[in-house]
């Protein structure tokens, strides 16, 4: 999927993920999000196929009944189809190795298979559903409003335009510059790993779409030219020394050298 995220192949951290999903599930159980219940649009066939896929690929950690194992993997009852689509659809699941956090990797399943898995997990308990195409259509959103929502709720970790940033102990907030709108939406809804949950009472579905519109507006690039990674003054300073002062000092050496 996205090249930046692929470079960040950390050895994934099962324990932290377990905690994340545990917190998520207890949350979902206590206050089942009213807006995003898993609708059983998926056919019964999908559920059956999903169960088979799950048994083959996920059950070794999460258990055949998806109720998880203490200290290994969280229960997936009630996480909803959105969580499955995000975790599997960005390649974060299945995990390969432990590390500070599970990074995005090449996706291992086709979208149909992911939908089947999601259908089965969604059938286990109510949880957030995969958003509709209209919900994630940035062209329907208000990018300026998205800017205000983004910088209040997201920019502190993901950077002012979603370039990513560091968290504690080797964890990081990934770059959003190449993340698909569906996955952005699902991440807000489900709060994967370190990320908090932004339920629909916190960031409304319209605001989520505005955030997507804001991030899509960044794809036009920076009006000023190449963006140097859009990570702020540090890269600007580095370029000022290496390129700007570097070029000028190179020319002083030419000025100071005797002509042959």
């Amino acid at each position: 999927m996205n090249t930046l995220a692929r470079k960040r192949h950390h050895k994934a951290a099962p324990l932290l993920l377990v905690l994340a999903l545990l917190a998520l599930i207890t949350g979902a159980a206590a206050f089942a999000a009213p807006s995003a219940t898993a609708t059983a649009e998926a056919s019964a066939d999908d559920v059956v196929a999903g169960e088979r896929l799950f048994a083959a690929n996920c059950a070794s950690c999460h258990g055949l009944d998806a109720e998880g194992q203490d200290g290994v993997a969280p229960s997936l009852v009630g996480v909803g189809a959105a969580a499955v689509d995000f975790q599997v659809g960005t390649g974060r699941m299945p995990m390969q190795a432990s590390g500070p956090q599970a990074p995005a990797k090449p996706v291992q399943f086709s979208q149909d298979e992911i939908n089947q898995l999601a259908a089965w997990v969604a059938s286990l308990g109510a949880g957030p559903a995969i958003p509709t195409a209209e919900q994630v259509d940035g062209s329907l959103g208000d990018a300026a409003n998205g800017m205000e929502v983004f910088r209040t709720n997201c920019a502190m970790c993901h950077g002012s335009i979603g370039g990513g940033g560091a968290l504690t102990q080797g964890k990081f907030a990934p770059s959003l510059l190449e993340t698909t709108p569906e996955h952005i939406y699902e991440a807000m809804l489900t709060g994967p790993q370190s990320m908090p949950v932004f339920n629909d009472a916190n960031v409304t579905p319209e605001q989520k779409r505005d955030v997507i519109a804001y991030l899509e507006a960044q794809q036009a690039g920076s009006p000023g030219g190449l963006s140097l990674g859009a990570i702020g003054p540090v890269s600007e300073g580095l370029w000022a020394w290496l390129i700007l002062l570097g070029l000028i000092i190179a020319s002083t050496i030419w000025v100071g050298a005797r002509s042959s």
Binding site: T152, A155, M156, S160, I161, A230
Partner: peptide, 19 residues
């Protein structure tokens, strides 16, 4: 090369902060 893209940071408000 872009430098100090203030339109990314947005107008000052005491609440937000970016990575």
């Amino acid at each position: 090369f872009t430098i100090n893209p203030v339109w990314n940071y947005g107008p000052y408000d005491p609440s937000p902060v970016s990575a």
